[in-house]
């Protein structure tokens, strides 16, 4: 089966910034993404967990995008403008997709 190269961008960001990030991505023309809940973790800012939390201040979410390699810089510029000052991680990996026209 034919596969096509793509970039998988995974952004772990504070839950309160989810809407800000997805809005910035949409405005940059990146309309395809998936938002996943994240259970907990640990990093430079210490440990955190979703367990028992009422507010969104302590939670994180993962926003995952699959795009064509030539659109990577556009996505990163839009994402970085939002995540720059916030707790989080941005990770890029090479991927293969089956239907290139969808990305």
């Amino acid at each position: 089966m034919d596969t096509h190269p793509a970039k998988r961008v995974e952004i772990i960001i504070e839950a309160v910034m989810e809407r800000h990030l997805t809005q910035a991505l949409s405005e940059a023309g990146v309309t395809g993404f998936t938002v996943l809940p994240v259970m907990g973790g640990s990093g430079r800012s210490g440990e955190w967990s979703r367990e028992g939390q009422v507010g969104r201040a302590s939670g994180m979410v993962a926003v995952i995008c699959l795009i064509r390699p030539e659109r990577l810089d556009t996505l990163l510029d839009a994402a970085f403008a939002v995540v720059e000052r916030h707790i989080g991680v941005v990770c890029i990996t090479d991927a293969q997709v089956l239907r290139a026209e969808r990305f």
Partner: peptide, 22 residues
């Protein structure tokens, strides 16, 4: 506060250490 303000502070003052206030 530990519900409304922490979320607002994370948006408006991300440089502040959330562990301290919460």
């Amino acid at each position: 506060s530990y519900i409304a303000v922490p979320a607002a502070m994370r948006v408006a003052l991300p440089e502040a250490n959330p562990a301290l206030s919460l």
